[in-house]
């Protein structure tokens, strides 16, 4: 059984700086997001119980080949990449179409695992769009997955309850970070990763059409401005008075 883990390379958020309210993204290393790494860790564990194979799938610009090595070191068996420098700007529906097309080329798909949202954008839309295109059932926000030959038993974590769901395979599942801590790859596995197979597709090979008209256009992307008073307090008494008084006029004003 193939266990597919969809992962997204994102700019390392720790390195993002803001200049004149604009994010500075040049020369920022690309990494895999933590929730995606949790998804991978969960998949690797499932592989151990099902004798499956973990296939990492990712779409992105040419840096993706390097970025994905970390996932191969952390337990992926092979990688299937869709490499295109324009993909990064595309809407989630296009990415979903590309991933779905690549998944259709793989036989014996058991589950397709996503993180609940990418580290940079956190939208979580691609997962259900991929399920829709493939016509697979979906279960989002899994904090536990058990697999047998034809069924996944998934504990879905909602805001106020957990649901245990049984879903026939193949299925698309998104996971929350609690499912598993990301694996830090061991040195030996890092060095072995370079020998693991990586297939690279280009968009035209997958016969996915990128629509000329975009559904979503970005108008601006700016750091929020904070409009705060910035008053310095020097004594606890002062602080106590502010805590007691500041709220009242504010609340009356509403």
């Amino acid at each position: 059984m193939n266990i597919i883990v969809a992962m997204k390379q994102v700019p390392d958020l720790h390195h993002i700086r803001i200049r004149n309210r604009e994010p500075v993204l040049d020369d920022i290393p690309m990494v895999l997001g933590d929730i995606d790494k949790s998804a991978l860790a969960a998949a690797v564990e499932l592989k151990e119980t099902t004798q499956g194979r973990v296939i990492i799938m990712s779409a992105g610009n040419r840096k993706i080949r390097d970025t994905v090595k970390e996932a191969l070191a952390a337990g992926g068996d092979e990688a299937i990449l869709i490499e295109d420098d324009d993909l990064a700007d595309e809407d989630s529906s296009v990415i979903a179409g590309v991933l779905a097309a690549a998944i259709q080329r793989i036989g014996d798909v058991g589950i397709v695992v996503f993180g609940e949202g990418s580290a940079d954008n956190y939208s979580g839309r691609v997962f259900s769009a991929v399920a829709a295109i493939l016509g697979y059932p979906q279960v989002g926000y899994a904090k536990r997955i058990e697999l047998n030959d034809s069924l996944a038993r998934v504990t879905r974590s909602l805001e106020d309850s957990d649901e245990i769901i049984e879903v026939p395979l193949p299925a698309v599942i998104s996971v929350v970070s609690e499912i598993k801590e990301p694996r830090i790859p061991s040195v030996k596995n890092i060095l072995k990763a370079r020998k693991k197979p990586t297939a690279v597709y280009h968009l035209n090979e997958l016969c996915v059409e990128v629509p000329a008209e975009k559904n979503i256009t970005t108008i601006s992307n700016l750091a929020p401005v904070s409009r705060r008073k910035g008053i310095v307090i020097t004594s606890v008494d002062e602080l106590a008075k502010i805590l007691k008084n500041d709220r009242k006029p504010d609340r009356q004003a509403q």
Partner: peptide, 17 residues
Amino acid sequence: SKEQLLIRNTARDFAEK
């Protein structure tokens, strides 16, 4: 090399975490 970068990053992640 990418492997060397990964060894470095792994050690860094480990140390920080």
